[in-house]
Design a protein around this nucleic acid. Structure first.
Length: 246
DNA sequence: CTGACGTGC
DNA sequence: GCACGTCAG
């Protein structure tokens, strides 16, 4: 579990698989379209490979620790792989420029078919942002989005142990003053440039439980109580995994 | 940094 | 034509 931060300010949360070296999901709050610009570099998270490192993302060239890359993907893993570093928490839906900057960390990215990333997935991110802006923000709902992947069996390349997702999915939930979800929905698509399928949260949970081989899977916190307050006083609703055994 | 590419509007 | 999200050099 990583709370993505720069200078100790936290912007969103990621559940990262250090074995497969891709995130399972990123969860964040949507506050409208901000026209943020993109970085042209990707950060990494030193604390994954070094327990003593502080939890702020850094540029790879500024990190000098032994065993770098043992527990996370590095930029070189993606080079000439034929895959994009596809954002989970996207730039397009970021709440601020600093937030957009912090999405450029490899723990928030997974190998994505470039035509899918730049094609149908991009269209989906934009459509969701527009619908949420029209339907939820004017009502003063708090909008939470969680975006994740289903790991496939393929590695990004012969020698590099970074798993290529079989699917990308995303789900949103608009909470009213009483923390009740008033508007919600989701999408899932295979990692090819095919239009992702529209799903209710419930149907998406059922499909994901099957794909993850879990007994149940909850995208959003079922409780009406706000979750433990963390991460810059944002009440982030994190999806939860319930595994058969762990 | 710049230039380029494919997608989709 | 234009915006977008990337990549290569």
């Amino acid at each position: 579990q990583i709370c993505q931060s720069q200078n100790n300010v936290f912007y969103y949360a990621t559940f990262y698989d250090t074995n497969k070296k891709i995130p399972m999901y990123s969860a964040y709050k949507f506050e409208g379209l901000k026209n943020c610009t993109r970085l042209n570099a990707w950060y990494i998270e030193p604390q994954l490979d070094d327990n003593n490192a502080p939890p702020n993302m850094k540029l790879e060239k500024d990190v000098k620790i032994q065993g770098l890359g043992d527990y996370q993907a590095l930029n070189g893993n993606y080079e000439k792989s034929g895959y994009d570093r596809g954002h989970l928490a996207p730039v397009f839906q970021a709440e601020s420029q600093s937030c957009a900057d912090t999405t450029f960390t490899l723990t928030n990215a997974a190998p994505q078919n470039p035509y899918f990333n730049r094609g149908q997935w991009r269209v989906l991110e934009r459509n969701i942002a527009k619908n949420l802006s029209d339907q939820c923000l004017p009502n003063k709902y708090s909008v939470y989005i969680v975006t994740g992947v289903v790991p496939g069996t393929k590695n990004i390349s012969n020698k590099v142990n970074v798993k290529v997702p079989s699917h990308f999915w995303t789900a949103y939930c608009c909470l009213d003053n009483n923390n009740k979800c008033q508007i919600s929905g989701g999408f899932i698509g295979v990692n090819e440039n095919i239009t992702p399928k529209d799903k209710s949260v419930k149907d998406l949970e059922t499909e994901l439980a099957k794909l993850y081989n879990l007994t149940s899977f909850n995208l959003f916190d079922r409780s009406t109580e706000p979750p433990a307050n963390k991460a810059n006083q944002k009440t982030m609703k994190i999806s939860s995994f319930k595994t058969k055994r762990q």
